[in-house]
Design a protein around this nucleic acid. Structure first.
Lengths: 221, 221
DNA sequence: CAAGATTCTGCCACTGAGTGGCATAAGCCT
DNA sequence: AGGCTTATGCCACTCAGTGGCAGAATCTTG
C-alpha cells in the first residue's frame, strides 16, 4: 500500500530503522519457529516472547498471524505494482507485459536470503490451509490493483471499453495462475532454489498458456 | 466431498432428514442475519440461538463461520466434480469441456432459491475479506480435485506427460477466473438474477479468454 | 540543553472463534 | 422392549485479535 515502506533507503533513519529491524526479526523468527513446530504449533505469545516484543506490537506491524509468514511474497507483489507503473507498453501482448514485469520484480528482490524466505514461506503454506487462503486473497487484491494500473496506463485492442477491463483482469489471472504453478514446481524441486531458477520456471509455465487454452481432449486409452 | 450429501433424494430418510433441515436452516438464517448486520456483526452464539442449535452442533455441520455463508457456491462445485466425472470428451477443447460442465452444473442447481442464496452469499463476500479468502481457497482445492479427474479420465494432446497436468491446471484456472468475473458482473447487475442469466454471462466471459491472451497493448492517448 | 508534544511500546482485560470431553437423549437394529 | 449406535447439549479451555491506558522513548521548539 504505502510506497515509502519499500522505497526508503536512508531517508528518516532513526526511529523507523528500529521498526524495520523488529519487523525483519519477526519474519525470520516466525519462519524458523513455524518451520520447526508447524504454523499451528506456535502461538503468537511464544513468537513474541522469542523476539522479545509484546503481542500488541506484533499487531501494529502485521495484520494477522498469517501475514507475517506471507511477508516475502507480499514484498514481491509490492515491487510488481511499482514495475507495472513504469514499464513501456511497446505493442507487446498484455500477458507478456505482465510476465516481464514479474520477472523484473523477482530480479529486484534482495539477494540476501529472499529466496530462502520464500521457500520456507511456501513450504509452510502448502500444509497450512489458512495461510494458503490468506495468500490467495492477497493475490486477488493485488490483481485488482494491477488491473487498475493497466487500464489507466494502457490502451487495449479490445472491441468494447468494458471488455478492456475484463481482458486485463483475465490476462492477469493467467499470470497469477502461471506464477503459482511455477512457484509450486520450484518449491517441490530438491535443490537449487535461486531467483534465476524461479524466473526460468515462470517463463516455461507462461509459455504453456496458449497450449492450455487450445488443448483438445480425448478419452483415455 | 461425500457424494451422498447431494445425490440422496429419499434413501435413508429419517435421521439424515433432520440433519439436512438444520443445515439448511443454518444457511438461510446465517445469510439473513449476515445480510442485515454484516458478517462480523453477528456472533455464532446469536446465530445458533436463532436456529435453536448449540454451537457444538454448528461446528459438526460446518467447518467455520465462513463456511456456512459459502455453502451455496460449494454445492455448485460439488456438482461440477460429479459432472466432470461423467462427461464425454469428444475432441473438444479442454477449456470448453470445463465450461460446459460448469454450465451443466448451474443448470442442475435447485430452482428454489439457489440463485437468491448465491446472490446474498456473494454480496456478503464482496465486503468481507475473510469470506472472500475462504472462497478462493475452496475454489483452489476444488481445482486440484478437478485436475485430478481430468488427467485420470482424459488424454491431452500435450508433448510431454508432465505438461498435460500443467495444462489441465492452467485451463481450469482460466475457467475459475472467468467464472469469478461472470459472477461479479452478475451480482453487480440491478435485477434479473437468474441461473440462465448467470450462464449467459459465463459464456460471454469465457468467449473473451482467447482475446485476453492475445490482446496487445499500447500507451494511453 | 530542557521542557513540552508526539509517538511508540507494554500490560491488562476482554470478545469471540474453534476444540475436546463427557453425559444424555434420540434414532436404529433385532 | 432390549441394547447399540450416533447425534446433541453443555462446560471449560486455548488462542487470535482489539481497545484502553500508563509510561518510556523520540522528535521538536525555545
Amino acid at each position: 500500500m504505502t510506497p515509502e515502506t519499500v522505497a526508503a533507503p536512508a531517508k528518516p533513519p532513526l526511529r523507523e530503522r528500529r521498526k524495520l529491524r523488529t519487523r525483519q526479526a519477526l519474519i525470520d523468527t516466525a519462519l524458523e519457529l513455524f518451520g520447526e513446530h508447524g504454523f499451528d504449533g506456535v502461538t503468537l505469545d511464544r513468537l513474541c516472547e522469542a523476539v522479545e516484543v509484546s503481542k500488541r506490537t506484533f499487531f501494529r506491524t502485521f495484520s494477522s498471524k498469517e501475514d507475517v509468514a506471507m511477508a516475502p511474497t507480499q514484498d514481491l507483489w509490492a515491487v510488481f505494482l511499482e514495475v507495472l507503473e513504469s514499464c513501456p507498453p511497446d505493442g507487446r501482448r498484455l500477458v507478456s507485459l505482465y510476465e516481464d514485469a514479474l520477472v523484473e520484480s523477482i530480479g529486484r528482490m534482495p539477494d540476501g536470503g529472499w529466496a530462502e524466505r520464500v521457500l520456507a514461506s511456501r513450504k509452510l503454506a502448502a500444509r497450512t490451509p489458512s495461510m494458503s487462503a490468506h495468500g490467495l486473497a492477497f493475490c486477488d487484491r493485488v490483481g485488482g490493483e494491477a488491473v487498475a494500473v493497466a487500464v489507466r496506463r494502457f490502451t487495449l485492442d479490445a472491441t468494447a471499453d468494458g471488455a478492456a477491463r475484463l481482458r486485463a483482469r483475465l490476462a492477469l489471472d493467467m499470470l497469477l495462475s502461471a506464477f503459482h504453478q511455477a512457484l509450486a514446481a520450484w518449491v517441490a524441486q530438491p535443490s537449487g532454489h535461486t531467483r534465476e531458477d524461479l524466473t526460468r520456471r515462470l517463463r516455461t509455465v507462461c509459455a504453456e498458456l496458449p497450449g492450455a487454452l487450445a488443448a483438445t481432449v480425448e478419452p483415455r486409452g
